[in-house]
Amino acid sequence: MHSEKPTLTAKTALWAYEGEEHDFISTRTFGFWLYLLSDALIFAGLFASYAVMDNPMSAFGHPLANGLLSASRGLIQTFIVLGSVFSVSVGSLGLKTGNKGLVLGGLAAGGLLGALFIWFGVSDLQVMAAAGNGPLESGYLACLYALLITHALHMGFGLLWIVAMFVHVARWGLDAMNTARLLCLRMFWQFQASVWVVIYVYVYLFGGAH
């Protein structure tokens, strides 16, 4: 059978007396990464719903994406969200040198761009709703709104988080705990850009062009 032969020498280690130093920051960032993967599956569910509903029957007399969304405005939103992620990421370089100003500056700039992004998206949706294509009008519209608003809600939650990090960094500086949190926040923000490019290509461009 495959079981290991009992070989015991004087050198065989039996106990880890020194204790094992678990990498606290990596454990946290890995756990948070797993959360992001599950969040990606939430978007998978929404994309699947969107794909199923993306037909005239579900649109119930209302237009599909090509009659509702503007690809060029979407491109502007893409630039804004990339700019925001860029700011937060560059700000995080301050963690290398313990440069609080750079970290917080990056967060602030990223947060402002994020707010601009949300404002942009929400005002588009308002125009759509005012033109009689609100979320309650058809199954397709409900899916479209659900997808866009879920993404915007994520960004909004990220803004709350940014504000909270200002408080934490002011109070405890860039210690291990805050470093772990800032690394998670950076991932969270970058993740929003990844989701957005999928939305942009699939809903705005693919939906707009066929």
Binding site: A48, V52, M53, S58, F60, P135, S138, G139, Y140, A142
Partner: peptide, 21 residues
């Protein structure tokens, strides 16, 4: 709660989508 039509029988809802999800 809000009266959307994801899975309703009318207004472009698709209840098979629910069953699939």
């Amino acid at each position: 709660y809000l009266g959307t039509h994801f899975f309703t029988a009318g207004m472009g809802g698709n209840f098979m989508l629910y069953i699939n999800l």
